[in-house]
């Protein structure tokens, strides 16, 4: 464990806490894409298949349980909770996640480190995580008004993977044979997808104006 990875995990944890707080306290999910939340639940479900078979550390297991519980409860809130679901804008959140799931699954079948079910699922979860934010970014462009909590949520979600890139660089130079091209490239693609959001987020913060994405 290094400081970059710990910071990345804490930033990731903060993003789900910000989202859960928003939904739980103001009982609203306005501006949040259910499609992205469902994709994240699928990402964690396919990535943490080994949660009970491969014990790595208490920290690792606890964080996996937190991410699984939070992502599924957010999906539950947005689909089932009688008040929260009313603020879900299903007419705007129309991104068909099958267009993301199928290509990632096919790609994982061809590009993986070992052709086993767990490894292919793990690789699928990496590719899917890289693109899971797309429905959310599309929704932000459409709804245009981005409330602070949603902006902070997306920012933290992007920042965590950027910190992971620093972690991979650190591990590459400090651990012999630590090479995971698949992880690195999908993590880089994921972070680049946030690049334009970061640009507008930083500018809105610098000029102290409300965050607006161009149409």
């Amino acid at each position: 464990m290094n400081i970059f990875r710990l910071a990345g995990d804490m930033t990731h944890l903060m993003s789900v806490i910000v989202l859960l707080l928003k939904i739980h306290t103001i009982k609203s999910c306005a501006g949040i894409s259910l499609k992205t939340q469902e994709l994240y639940a699928l990402v964690f479900a396919t990535r943490y298949l080994d949660i009970f078979t491969d014990f790595i550390s208490l920290y690792n297991t606890i964080m996996k349980l937190i991410f699984l519980a939070s992502s599924f409860s957010i999906v539950w809130y947005m689909r089932q909770h009688k008040i929260v679901r009313r603020s879900y804008d299903k007419d705007q959140d129309t991104f068909r996640h099958l267009f993301l799931i199928l290509p990632c699954l096919l790609l994982a079948l061809f590009i993986n480190e070992k052709f086993t079910f767990k490894e292919v699922m793990w690789t699928f979860s990496l590719f899917l995580e890289a693109v899971a934010i797309l429905p959310q970014l599309v929704l932000l462009q459409r709804t245009r008004n981005i409330d602070n909590l949603t902006g902070q949520y997306v920012f933290l979600l992007g920042a965590y993977r950027a910190l992971y890139i620093l972690n991979w660089i650190y591990r590459y130079f400090t651990e012999p044979h630590y090479v995971h091209w698949i992880t690195w490239i999908s993590g880089l693609v994921q972070t680049l997808l946030y690049a334009d959001f970061f640009y507008y987020y930083f500018n809105s913060w610098k000029n102290n104006v409300k965050l607006q994405l161009p149409a």
């Binding site: 995990d9 080994d50 991410f67 992971y164 992880t183």
Partner: peptide, 10 residues
């Protein structure tokens, strides 16, 4: 040998 430590990240 590929230890399970390969996937020691979240």
């Amino acid at each position: 040998a590929r230890s399970h430590r390969d996937h020691d990240e979240l």
